[in-house]
Nucleic acid binder design. Structure first.
Lengths: 138, 138
DNA sequence: ATGGGTGCAAAAGTTTTGCATTCCC
DNA sequence: GGGAATGCAAAACTTTTGCACCCAT
């Protein structure tokens, strides 16, 4: 994800508007530990702007995903998480505490790319390792 | 997923019971095209046993997943799909029609396995390619 | 001024849960 | 007989949508 000011500029270029809510969501994403859910972002921004609506958070996250500034992750939790690090990489998920780690990996998954793709045009790949962190191995 | 009779035996071994509903769900999974959702399974079994409850389907699928006879897939659709082919392999998803193809791939993801795992014990990995099938490339 | 954005509430969709009844072992 | 399973309905959750009002451009 690019710096907040560049995101605002990118919004304008698309005819979208820069509102205080969106700016705040951008900042929350930038400062958020890692891989927050929509609800996580919502709670962060509510501390600063208590009237912010969850629908606004969802709309803004959708825009960022469409713009390619944010990656939507589905890690089998029944809800989405969002990743500001958009360069291709892998994830490692603890099945105990649900912590998510970024892992270096070939962005294009060139090594994995199947030879027989049944005519499919492949856009991207997602690699997730599931396991248990040191604390959850007990 | 093993044959229906073996699944029934496996249930009994765990102190679980073999009911007509569960047998039917096993058969539906065995005969189902590929990667059905809970709702898909529900509709298949309703044709034979109209009083079957969706909760029963969910409970039974959960047991199979826990027993390692079924793999639960999260492909970012807001719902789970289930895969009877439990040997490690990859998936290719069409973002247009949501068709899901099985793709051969190293079950252990040995080539991908990160060297630095921060002390994590890794249980399994999931590789999903997203793209467009021939029909949806228009 | 105008078209997009916001907040609120309701709706939609999937999955879980509580509970009385039924049934496998 | 006893414990698990079932069916039903309600609840829990995440995400989407409709709409009246507001605001960035």
């Amino acid at each position: 994800m690019r710096p907040v000011d560049e995101l605002c500029e990118a919004l304008r270029e698309q005819g979208l508007k820069v509102t205080p809510q969106r700016r705040l969501i951008f900042e929350a994403l930038r400062d958020s530990p890692n891989h927050p859910s929509a609800e996580d972002v919502y709670h962060l921004v509510r501390d600063v702007m208590p009237d912010m609506s969850l629908a606004t958070v969802y709309h803004t996250l959708d825009h960022l995903v469409t713009m390619g500034e944010l990656v939507q992750l589905d890690l089998g939790e029944g809800k989405s998480r969002y990743d500001t690090y958009t360069n291709g990489h892998f994830h490692l998920v603890c099945q105990g505490c649900r912590e998510v780690l970024d892992i270096a990996g070939d962005p294009d998954c060139a090594d994995l790319m199947p030879t027989e793709t049944s005519g499919y045009q492949i856009d991207r790949c997602e690699v997730v390792f599931y396991g248990h962190c040191p604390d959850c191995q007990a």
